[in-house]
Design a binder for these strands. Sequence first.
DNA 1: TTTTTGTGTAAGAAATCCTGACACACGTTG
DNA 2: CAACGTGTGTCAGGATTTCTTACACAAAAA
Lengths: 134, 134
Amino acid sequence: MNDEYRRSMPLFPISIVISLTDLSARQIRYYEQHELVKPARTEGNRRLFSFNDVDRLLEIKSLIEKGINLAGIKQVLSMQDEEETQEHSEEDIQEAQKDLSEKELRKMLKNELFQGNRMGKSSLRQGELSRFFH
Amino acid sequence: MNDEYRRSMPLFPISIVISLTDLSARQIRYYEQHELVKPARTEGNRRLFSFNDVDRLLEIKSLIEKGINLAGIKQVLSMQDEEETQEHSEEDIQEAQKDLSEKELRKMLKNELFQGNRMGKSSLRQGELSRFFH
DNA sequence: TTTTTGTGTAAGAAATCCTGACACACGTTG
DNA sequence: CAACGTGTGTCAGGATTTCTTACACAAAAA
């Protein structure tokens, strides 16, 4: 609750985020451009990332490495955002998942997606950064 | 243990530390100059502060507001540093406290120091930052 | 009163970051 | 196959942030 406030506090310049995520500046800016992350800005227009932002970037990176394109990642992330705010019934969740797997995933990700891990929530879930911080 | 590693990771530029501590850049640099904090540096020589650094600065600020001068603060902090690394017997701790109170405090802080709170460890202890982060 | 402390402020230089813009490999589409 | 779309690298010019050094000064200490 107050926790979310702390995790969304703008703290890191892009250089730190680069070292934390091993993404390039170009990648990070490109993801922002496509609204996968929305870092805050200083008065002088410099990006400032929160813990949530960094977590999100790590998640994006993990999905990228699975071969998912940005459109797909956007879907996944927006679904997760919904889950965080609203409480869902079992049906809702299945509905949302159908939305992703039928309309987008099967078509554009072919079979690469489900090699090995079945994209279970566990591996995609938040808190990646908790390996570094607490 | 691994926790200490995370808390000592250089993450924040001075601008963020300024907003987090409400200290001026001048103050922060001055404290560094007198070795109360030792922030890391980027390749380009910019300061990078860790959680521990910010905690320490908040502690410094709190002590400053109590009217303690830098020499006294340095003593207090160095004592705390020792406590963190080594395990002490009861005697050791009393010894250290005597070291501070007799040699320095009574002489240079006069009576201002003990007005109200008796400088109990509780109020000086670390983790101030935990009010903002976890 | 003279000195020391702690902080403000300013200047010039250097580092970091910003937004385009162009390139390009690869995969997709017509 | 040719044309297009996607995701990333890289470079340039400009803006912002930070650095050090130096001077100033009020308040406290000597």
